[in-house]
C-alpha cells in the first residue's frame, strides 16, 4: 500500500497547501515504511508534477481529463476512490481547502473510512493506533482524535506543516478514472474567478493585511491595498466592513467568515472581537494597529502600534518600499 495525496493545481502550478499535504503524506509514508503517491487533477505543468519529488513523493498519477479542470464533486470523488483502490491506499491526505472538505466527507463514507479535517500535526502512530491532532472550538483548542477505521483520511490545515524539500524527482504516470458524462451531471454552469489583480489568494496567503471599521470608509482602502502589495500579501476585512459593503464578502475573516492561518496577520482598525479572533488566532505573528490602547486585539498581538491608521499605514508603506526584496 502507499499513502495517497491529492494535489490541487492553480494556474498550472501546484498550490502551496498541496505541497504541505505532500510533505505530510511522505512523512506519514516514511513512518509506515511505505511510499507516497500523489494524485493530480486539473491543469498542472508536467515539471511542476515531477518536482513533487522534493516533497518526498515517489510517483504522481495525473488525470488530465479537461472536464476535471472545473471542480465537480462526484467526478473528483470517483477519481480519488479509483486511485486509492489501485494503490491499495489506507491513508489518504488532502489539504483542508473547500475542495478537500467537499470530497473528503463523501470519500470517507464511500471507503468506509475515518475522516479528520483541520489537522495541525503529524500523526502519532503506535502499533495499530493512529491518532491525529486537530483544531477545534475555532482555534481555541486542539483535540487528539484516534482514527479507528482501516482507511484513514486526513485534511491538513493550511500553513501548519512545513514544506519539506529533500530534492528528488517523482515519476509522472498518466491515470484515467474513465469517467462518464453522468459523473459530470452536476458540473458548474459557470465558474467565476475573482480578479486578484495578479495578487494573492486569501486562503493561500502567507501574509494578510486586514482592515476594520476603524478605516472609516472604502475611500481609505487604498492604504490596505498598497501595504498588501508591497508585502506580497492578500487583503481581508472584518465582518461589519463586508456587511456594509465596503469590501466583498469573500474577504471577511472570522467565526462566520473564512479562517486564515498566515505567517503574518496585520490588523488595522479592527477592535479584536472574539468572533474576529476565532478566524485569525492561529496566525503565527499578529500585528495590531489601533488608535485605542485598550482595544482587545492588543492582548492577542505580538507587535502593536497605538495610533491613527491614516497616519501610521503610510509610514509602513514607505518602510516596506525601502526593503530589498
Amino acid at each position: 500500500m502507499s499513502v495517497l495525496v491529492l494535489v490541487e493545481g492553480f494556474n498550472g502550478e501546484i498550490k502551496k497547501s498541496s505541497l504541505e499535504a505532500a510533505s505530510y503524506g511522505s512523512q506519514v509514508a516514511q513512518t509506515l515504511g511505505t511510499t507516497a503517491t500523489a494524485l493530480a487533477i486539473g491543469e498542472v505543468h508536467d515539471d511542476a508534477l515531477a518536482k513533487l519529488g522534493e516533497q518526498g513523493i515517489s510517483r504522481v498519477l495525473y488525470d488530465n481529463d479537461p472536464r476535471l479542470n472545473n471542480f465537480v464533486t462526484e467526478a473528483y470523488v470517483k477519481v480519488i476512490a479509483k486511485a486509492a483502490a489501485q494503490e491499495n491506499s489506507k491513508v489518504i491526505i488532502f489539504s483542508n481547502t473547500n475542495i478537500g472538505a467537499a470530497v473528503g466527507a463523501r470519500l470517507a463514507v464511500r471507503l468506509n473510512g475515518s475522516l479528520a479535517t483541520n489537522v495541525t500535526q503529524l500523526p502519532q502512530i503506535n502499533g495499530s493506533s493512529f491518532t491525529v491532532t486537530r483544531g477545534v472550538f475555532s482555534g481555541k483548542a486542539f483535540a487528539d482524535v484516534e482514527l479507528t477505521s482501516d482507511v484513514k483520511i486526513i485534511a491538513v490545515k493550511k500553513n501548519s506543516i512545513e514544506i519539506t524539500s529533500q530534492g528528488g524527482t517523482a515519476t509522472v504516470e498518466k491515470f484515467s478514472a474513465e469517467l462518464t458524462d453522468a459523473d459530470f451531471a452536476a458540473a458548474p454552469k459557470e465558474t467565476v474567478m475573482q480578479d486578484t489583480d495578479g495578487g494573492v489568494l486569501l486562503p493561500e496567503a502567507e501574509i494578510v493585511v486586514s482592515g476594520g471599521r476603524g478605516l472609516k470608509g472604502p475611500e481609505n482602502w487604498h492604504l490596505i491595498e498598497e501595504l498588501a502589495k508591497e508585502l506580497g500579501a492578500a487583503t481581508a476585512c472584518s465582518k461589519p466592513v463586508a456587511d456594509i459593503g465596503w469590501r466583498p464578502h469573500h474577504e471577511h475573516v472570522g467565526q462566520t467568515g473564512i479562517t486564515v492561518s498566515p505567517n503574518l496577520y496585520i490588523a488595522i482598525g479592527i477592535s479584536g472581537a472574539i468572533q474576529h479572533l476565532a478566524g485569525v488566532n492561529s496566525s503565527k505573528v499578529i500585528v495590531v494597529i489601533n488608535k485605542d490602547p485598550e482595544a482587545p486585539f492588543f492582548k492577542a498581538a505580538d507587535y502593536g502600534i497605538v495610533g491613527d491608521a491614516l497616519e501610521v499605514v503610510p509610514k509602513l508603506i514607505e518602510a516596506a518600499k525601502a526593503l530589498d526584496k
Partner: peptide
C-alpha cells in the same frame, strides 16, 4: 462512530505584545 476523541489541549499563550511608537 469512526473516530474517538481521546484528549484536548489549549494553544500556548502568546508571549505578550511589543509596542512600537507610532
Amino acid at each position: 462512530a469512526k473516530t474517538a476523541y481521546t484528549s484536548f489541549s489549549k494553544p500556548e499563550k502568546k508571549g505578550g505584545v511589543r509596542m512600537i511608537d507610532a
